[in-house]
Computed example of a mutant assay.
Amino acid sequence: MAKFTTHANLRDALLDTGDEELIENAPTDYFWGCGQLGGGQSMLGKLLMETRKALRDGGQ
């Protein structure tokens, strides 16, 4: 959250994704990324979507 509240260009880029699902394209990482076959947890994408929602809701 600190990165996106400190840097307006990053905040704007995240908010510009609208309601799109964000998936970390990391075929070798099954936790932070999508994994080779797309079955990874993509935790980075999930965290970014939570951050985006918090920014929209006025959270800091």
Rank of each mutant, 00 (worst) to 15 (best):
A26Q: 07
F4L: 04
T28L: 15
G59Y: 13
T51D: 10
T28Y: 14
G40N: 09
L37S: 13
A8K: 12
D19F: 04
W32M: 04
G58F: 06
D19H: 13
M43A: 13
M1H: 13
K46A: 12
A2L: 10
Y30S: 05
D29R: 02
T5E: 07
N25V: 00
F31L: 10
L10G: 08
K46P: 02
G45V: 01
R56V: 12
R56F: 09
D16P: 00
M1C: 05
G59N: 14
L22P: 02
F4K: 05
A13G: 11
K53D: 15
D29F: 03
L47M: 10
P27D: 04
A8Y: 01
T6Q: 14
D19L: 06
Q41W: 09
Q41I: 08
E24M: 07
R11P: 00
E20R: 13
F31D: 05
G45K: 06
G35N: 05
D16A: 15
Q60W: 11
G39R: 10
D12F: 06
E20P: 00
Y30G: 02
T28I: 08
E20D: 15
Q41G: 04
T6Y: 08
L10R: 12
I23M: 08
L14F: 01
T5M: 01
G40F: 05
C34T: 09
A13D: 11
T6P: 07
G58N: 01
R11V: 09
G33Y: 01
A13N: 12
W32F: 02
F4D: 04
D57I: 12
G45M: 02
K3C: 11
G38Q: 03
N25T: 00
D29E: 09
C34P: 03
L15E: 05
Q36K: 06
S42A: 01
D16L: 13
D57K: 14
N25E: 02
T5W: 00
A54T: 15
M43Q: 15
P27C: 00
R11N: 08
G40L: 08
E50Y: 10
L15N: 04
Q36T: 00
N25C: 12
A8N: 09
R56C: 06
L10P: 03
L44F: 07
E21S: 07
N9S: 14
D29V: 01
T28F: 13
G38S: 05
T17Q: 14
H7W: 08
F4V: 00
W32E: 04
I23W: 06
R52L: 11
R52Y: 09
K46D: 11
E24H: 05
L48T: 07
R56Y: 10
G58Y: 04
D16K: 15
K3R: 09
K53H: 12
L10N: 06
T51E: 14
D19Q: 13
R11E: 15
G38W: 02
L55R: 07
F31Q: 01
T6W: 02
A54E: 15
G18T: 05
C34Q: 12
G40W: 07
H7I: 12
L22R: 04
R56M: 13
C34F: 03
G38E: 07
C34W: 03
I23H: 08
A54Q: 15
A54S: 15
Q60H: 14
G58M: 06
L44T: 07
M1P: 04
M43Y: 12
L44P: 03
K53M: 12
E20V: 00
A26P: 08
G18K: 06
